[in-house]
Nucleic acid binder design. Structure first.
Length: 420
RNA sequence: GCGGCCGUAGCUCAGCCAGGUAGAGCACCCGGUUGUGGUCCGGGAUGUCGCGGGUUCAAGUCCCGUCGGUCGCCCCA
């Protein structure tokens, strides 16, 4: 059942996240932001849409994301706007706009929010999906790369997701480095063009690096012998990458060198990586990231190196062990016995909530039995039972729903009793 | 954007092949004597059979289209 009877289901590729799963969603989101904050990354909020140019210039017009997947529209002022397909270019735009790079460097920011790409939906791939992320802008020190990657890996572990970190360096844009390598690769591909799958032949000119991602058996065979970027990095990029891997090894972050790893957004340079989880089919990347040392200049800013990661919440929720049940926020359920107890139970629930104790009560006029059942269902540890007898004596009967034991006590004692 | 499979109660699904008055389990509500849950027993409510069209005396069942989901391609989180 997907369409509402009125024909108003959530739009294709979008979805509602309902209780109880939404509790877990909130837990993971909070865990991410706390993990980032503990490493000094401050939250930033940017708009859900930007001038289209931010992505065309930032992410790159030749990328699949910008070329085919953006939600672009005109507003009433005839401006071309685009729902953000990713979070890094908007953050860089905000940094440049507000001159954050004129302050202490690196600028360390975290964000969380929905992203939008118009693709064919399937499990783990939605048109509106949710990413969290961090960006460190203004330093090309390998320790920044290592810090960002370590924080990301720690987050996955804490969230209960088993991942493998795939790591590569794709060099920087210079004839001595990636440009030279790409020339070499194009030459190799042209020499072997007849052995490539037809759809991969077009890529030779448009996006030769992506041939490494091809699933076509014939192309894969060709690519096994292809020159690797790792063998053609300039000495600076090679040194940078060796420093990054050395630091990761030192702090015990496991990784797998993946010399064929390339990424889909044009701004990536040097360090590039993905976290993959098992059991998600072909949508196995639960997060990725990399360095983007040319992004600032693409957006008209000064030279300003940066690096970031973007874990995807939707896939993380699919990948984490389903056993992690969220804790119920309700501790006490107030049971009202008889009409007279209704206002009193409402007052008791209110004062418990004001004291910070998670409290629920019957709002449906249920019988005592019905209320007890509802109490059990709410996940509350205690039922606070209030009837004529208790009201007249200023007491309340507190029942431990696990053990079944109950005792009567003055109302004033209730709070300290359930506070533990 | 392309291809395979699927779409019946809130949920998971049976019924479809061989057309003949819509089912199960779970969940939900009430009750098992008047103030006590999670077990058990009894009872109850709930469906435009995704949507539209066609074939037929008759369509959940056959045919076509469409929308949505899912898996693969593509791409990526």
């Amino acid at each position: 059942m997907s369409e509402d009877a009125r024909g108003l289901g959530a739009p294709k590729g979008t979805r509602d996240i309902l209780p109880p799963e939404s509790w877990g969603w909130q837990d993971v989101l909070r865990l991410a932001m706390d993990t980032f904050a503990a490493a000094g990354y401050a939250p930033i909020e940017t708009p859900a849409f930007e001038h289209t140019e931010v992505f065309e210039r930032g992410v790159g017009a030749t990328s699949e994301v910008v070329g085919k997947q953006m939600y672009t529209f005109r507003d009433r002022g005839n401006r071309s706007l685009t729902l953000r397909p990713e979070g890094t270019a908007p953050v860089m735009r905000a940094v440049l706009e507000h001159n954050l790079h004129r302050g202490p460097l690196p600028v360390k920011l975290s964000y969380a929010g929905p992203m939008f790409r118009q693709e064919r939906p399937q499990k783990g791939r939605y048109r509106q999906f949710f990413q969290v992320g961090i960006e460190a802008i203004g330093s090309d020190d390998p320790r920044v790369d290592a810090e960002i990657i370590e924080v990301g890996s720690r987050f996955y572990r804490a969230a209960g997701v088993e991942t493998r970190l795939l790591l590569n360096s794709i060099g920087h844009l210079d004839p001595s480095c990636r440009q030279g390598y790409v020339k070499l690769l194009v030459g190799y591909l042209e020499d072997n063009e007849s052995s490539l799958a037809p759809e991969d032949r077009e890529r030779i000119q448009t996006n030769p690096l992506r041939t490494f991602d091809s699933k076509e058996a014939t192309t894969k065979t060709v690519m096994e012998e292809a020159p690797l970027i790792s063998d053609h990095l300039c000495s600076a990029c090679r040194g940078h990458f060796e420093a990054v891997t050395g630091l990761l090894a030192e702090v015990g972050v496991p990784f797998t060198l993946e010399p064929r790893l390339v990424r889909g957004l044009d701004y990536y340079t040097r360090t590039a990586f993905e976290w993959v989880a098992s059991g998600l089919g072909s949508q196995d990347a639960v997060g990725g990231g990399g360095r983007y040392d040319g992004l600032s200049e693409s957006l008209g800013g000064p030279p300003l190196p940066g690096i970031g990661i973007a874990p995807g919440l939707d896939r993380i929720m699919l990948a984490r062990s389903a056993a992690v049940a969220p804790r119920s926020p309700v501790q006490v359920y107030v049971v009202a016995v008889g009409e007279a107890a209704k206002p009193a139970s409402f007052g008791l629930a209110t004062s418990l909530r004001a004291a910070g104790v998670g409290t629920e009560l019957d709002l449906m006029g249920r019988s005592i039995k019905g209320q007890m059942k509802d109490a059990a269902r709410s996940g509350a540890r205690w039922a606070a039972i209030l009837g004529d007898d208790e009201i007249s004596s200023g007491t309340v009967m507190l029942k431990d729903l696990d053990s079944g034991e109950q005792e009567t006590m003055p109302v004033e004692q209730l709070r300290s009793r359930v506070g533990s």
